[in-house]
Write a protein that binds this DNA or RNA. Structure first.
Length: 105
DNA sequence: GTCATGACGGATC
DNA sequence: GGATCCGCCATGA
């Protein structure tokens, strides 16, 4: 069997499955797609991907926010707070480890 | 087919 | 703990 879909296509599908109130790191998503070192790809795909997907649920490994998000980390943070995610004064997710979604492919 | 890029990650200073 | 540099891999031109 060949590759069913492109790497970015898998990322799109995976992101679409992230439940509300949960988040995933770029590296984790990339790893689940089979490329643990393609974290940068996930970011690039996010910028080009569909706006109908919860890209705001994707954060950095430290629980940090995306710099290129429309509105900046500020807008990204606001989007997550709406879903019930708490943030620290440092601008990172307070309980990121609990909010982390294992994902399932 | 080749070059340069990108919403990162990890290591180092 | 914070900031900086390099490296990784797939995508697009």
């Amino acid at each position: 069997m060949k590759n069913e879909k492109s790497f970015k296509n898998r990322v799109n599908e995976l992101v679409a499955q992230i439940p509300k109130g949960k988040v995933m790191t770029y590296g984790q998503i990339a790893a689940l797609c089979g490329r643990p070192r393609a974290a940068r790809m996930v970011g690039g795909i996010a910028h080009h991907g569909d706006t109908g997907l919860p890209w705001h649920r994707i954060v950095k490994k430290d629980g940090g926010l995306a710099e290129g998000y429309p509105g900046g980390t500020q807008g990204h943070r606001a989007a997550l707070e709406v879903e019930g995610v708490k943030f620290t004064d440092s601008g990172r997710i307070a309980d990121m480890h609990k909010r982390l979604w294992q994902g399932s492919l």
